[in-house]
Design a protein around this nucleic acid. Sequence first.
DNA 1: TGTGACACGATGATATACGATTTCGGATAC
DNA 2: GTATCCGAAATCGTATATCATCGTGTCACA
Lengths: 234, 234
Amino acid sequence: MARDELTSAETATLSKSQQAYRWIKGRIASQEFSPGYRLVLGSIAGELDMSVVPVREAIRQLEAEGLVMFERNVGARVSMVDDTHYRFSMQSLSILEGAATALAARRLTVDDIQRARHINGLMIETLEHFDPRAFTGLNQDFHAALYEKCANPRMLDLVHGEWARLGHLRDSTFSFVPGRAAESVREHENILQLIESSAPLGEIEKAARRHRSATLDAYMIHEHPDEALGLPAF
Amino acid sequence: MARDELTSAETATLSKSQQAYRWIKGRIASQEFSPGYRLVLGSIAGELDMSVVPVREAIRQLEAEGLVMFERNVGARVSMVDDTHYRFSMQSLSILEGAATALAARRLTVDDIQRARHINGLMIETLEHFDPRAFTGLNQDFHAALYEKCANPRMLDLVHGEWARLGHLRDSTFSFVPGRAAESVREHENILQLIESSAPLGEIEKAARRHRSATLDAYMIHEHPDEALGLPAF
DNA sequence: TGTGACACGATGATATACGATTTCGGATAC
DNA sequence: GTATCCGAAATCGTATATCATCGTGTCACA
C-alpha cells in the first residue's frame, strides 16, 4: 500500500520536507521510534543531511495528524498510543466507517460487490495458515471496497484519517484475538448480503458499525477483561 | 467561544507562528480573505512585522485543517468553500455529533440538562426579534452542552474539527431559513426529554442526527430546491 | 544532609540570505 | 493575427546564523 521507502528517483521530485515526513513516519511505523521517543530536530536533520527547517515542518505535519505531540520550546516526542487511544480511535472508526458504508451502499455495482466478496474469499483462505498481518491488510481492503464509493467525500477523508491514525498499531489487532477472524469473515458476508438486498441504510450502517466494534470488544475482552465495558455500546 | 482577536497580553506569550495562525484565520473568517485569495508569505509577514518562517508554519497548519490549499512552489490560497463542501461537512457533522451526543447522554447530570434547557430558553426568547448570528451561537452552545461530556475524547476532537471547518460559513445558516429556527428549538426539547428519560442510545443518536440533517435539508430546499435530494438520508 | 537558587548546556524559535521554480508578459516568427 | 518561445520578476524552498527558553546539574546555605 503506502510506500514509505524513498527511491532516488522520488528523492529528486519530493520536497525535503516531505522526505523528512516520510522518513520519520516510517521510523515510527517500524517502531524504531517508539512512543515517547524524543524527536530532536538537529539530530534528524543531520541524519537526513538537510537543515532543520524541513524537519521542523515535517514534525508539525505529523503533529497535525496526531502521531507526535509537541510542546513549546521543548520539542516533539512520539505520541503515546496506549490502549486508551486505540480504543477511542477504533470506536470513532466504527461510527465513521459504518456511516460511510451506508452512504456508499446504494452506489455499489454488482462488480464492486463481487470484488469485495473475492477479497473476503481470500481472507477465508488465509484462515488455514493464519497470518495476522496479511489478514488485517485484506480486511482493510475489504472495507475500503465497501466505503470507497461513499457519496460524501468529507466522510471518506475522515475515515482515511482515522485509519492512518491507527496505522502504526493496526498490524497487531488480529494477532491478539485469532478467534475473532473467523467470525469476522462471516459478518462480512452478512454485510454484503444486506447491501445486495437493498436493506434499509440504517440496517447496513448498524451492521457495519457493530462489526467493527465487535472486533474492538473481542480485543478488549482478550486484553483487558476487567474493563471491557468501559465504552458504551450502541 | 473562540477568540480570534489578540490582546497585547496574549501577544507576549503566544508564539509568532500562532499569532500568524490566528491572524490569518481571523481574516478568513471575516471574509477579508475570500475563497481563492492568494496568501503571499512575504506580504503577510510584512503586515505582521515578522519573518516569513512563522507565517509559513501557520499556513501549513491551516492547510492541515483544510482552510487553505497549498501548491508547491506556487503558494497558498484560501480553499473554495462552496455549497458542496458545506453540505458534506454538515452531513458529517450530523453523524459525528449524533454519535457524540449519544456517547455523552448517560454522563449528563441534571445540572447539565438544566443548563442546556436554559440555553434553549434563550433561543426561544430571541425568536421574537430574530438575530440569525446570535441564534446560531446559542445553537452551538446548546449542542456543545450535550456532547461535551462525550465518553470518547477522540469523537470530541472530530466534532470540534468539523465545527471549525464550518466556522467561516456557519454564521449564515439560520439566516437563510428563518422558519427553521422555531422547529429547531422544539427538536431540542425533544432531545432533552429523550436523554432525561434514559431512552435507548440509538434513539438519542438518531434524534440528534436527524435534528442536524433537518437543518441541512431546510437549507437545501431553500437554496437548491432542484438538487435537494442529492444526499441520501438515513 | 536536604533544599533552594543560580548558571550552563541543549534545544527550539525566529531572522536573514540565497538558490530554485514558476508564472506572466512581450517579442518574434509564422 | 495568432501561437510560441524566451526572459525577467515574483515567490517559494532551504540553509545558515542568532536569540530565547527550558531542563539539569552543581554549589551554597540552612
